[in-house]
């Protein structure tokens, strides 16, 4: 199981256009839809918003990780987006978020997929990891940061 089975350069957006929480979630889900990761965009948006209602996934430190587990997801995938300006995501630390990971998994997922996602999540805690994502110049560089987890 490798990182590049979840994410590739097409799933990376270096400059998100959205300026608020709901539109950034939609913008990220749109990336998934374009890459045919999901079958039902509206369903995925609904699930993501439901999850946010239970508690924000803006975990602070400039990171947000909206995620969806649904039958409308074909395979486990991660989309990465970055906002230069920062977006008010209602984060725990009340600061704007710059790095966005949208994680989608089907209802029935293999443990190995979930374990890799867990590993990615663990890395987000580390300052170095976040900084190299913030400073990455292009999609290729983001991929190489992610591949080294």
């Amino acid at each position: 199981m490798e990182v590049n089975e979840f994410i590739n350069q097409n799933l990376i957006k270096m400059n998100l256009k959205s300026e608020d929480k709901e539109s950034v979630i939609k913008e990220m889900i749109e990336i998934m839809a374009e890459n045919e990761i999901i079958t039902d965009k509206d369903e995925v948006i609904k699930k993501a918003m439901e999850r946010e209602a239970k508690g924000t996934t803006g975990v602070g430190k400039g990171v947000a990780i909206p995620h969806v587990k649904s039958d409308a997801v074909k395979k486990p995938a991660v989309a990465f987006g970055r906002s230069k300006k920062g977006i008010d995501y209602g984060s725990m630390d009340e600061k704007p978020s710059y790095l966005f990971f949208l994680i989608t998994v089907p209802e029935e997922s293999h443990d190995e997929h979930l374990k890799l996602l867990a590993k990615l999540s663990r890395n987000l805690i580390h300052d170095d990891f976040r900084n190299s994502l913030l400073e990455a110049k292009d999609e290729e560089e983001v991929m190489s940061v992610l591949e080294n987890i």
Binding site: R51, K54, G55, T57, V59, I65, H67, K69, F101, I103, V105, L114, L117, A118, K119, S121, R122, N123, L124, I125, H126
Partner: peptide, 18 residues
């Protein structure tokens, strides 16, 4: 532990361990 059990659970764990 978190509702979906995909991300927060592990971030919290890493953060505590660190």
């Amino acid at each position: 532990s978190c509702p979906t059990g995909i991300a927060h659970t592990y971030m919290a764990s890493e953060s505590l361990e660190e």
